[in-house]
C-alpha cells in the first residue's frame, strides 16, 4: 500500500490477501504497471482500458473463484479472468448469486 520514493501511485491494494487492485487513474490497454503486493513486485499489463476507481485483476481468477478486496470476498468470477483484466459487474457477481 506504500509508494516508493514519492512516485505517484497508480494501483492501490487494500489488503495483502486481495486479488484485485483499484486504479487511481485510468489505465490504457497495454500499459504495464509495477506494484508491490504481499512483499513482491508484480508487473501488471492492462488487458484493456480500465476507468478511474475501477478494479484490475492482480492474478488469474478462474470462473467461480472468489474475488477478494479488503481481505474479504466481494463476489465470484462469472468467467475466467486474466491478470491485468478489468474486474467489474460484467465478469463478477455477488457471492451468493453465483454457483461455483
Amino acid at each position: 500500500m506504500s509508494s516508493k520514493g514519492g512516485e505517484v501511485r497508480v494501483l492501490m491494494i487494500m489488503h495483502p490477501a486481495d486479488n484485485v487492485a483499484v486504479c487511481l487513474r485510468p489505465l490504457e490497454a497495454g500499459e504495464i504497471i509495477q506494484v508491490m503486493h504481499a512483499g513482491k513486485t508484480l508487473s501488471i499489463e492492462a488487458r484493456g482500458a480500465v476507468p478511474l476507481g475501477h478494479k484490475v485483476a492482480l492474478s488469474q481468477v478462474a470462473r467461480g473463484q472468489k474475488v477478494i478486496k479488503y481481505g474479504e470476498t466481494i463476489g465470484r468470477a462469472l468467467k475466467d479472468i486474466a491478470a491485468g483484466e478489468h474486474v467489474h459487474d460484467h465478469n463478477i457477481a455477488d457471492y451468493e448469486g453465483v454457483t461455483p
Partner: peptide, 18 residues
Amino acid sequence: NRKGGLSTLAEKSLGAVL
C-alpha cells in the same frame, strides 16, 4: 456506484464499514 467502479453490494458495504 457501478459507474464509479463498485461491482457488488458486498464491495460497496465493506467500503462503508471500513
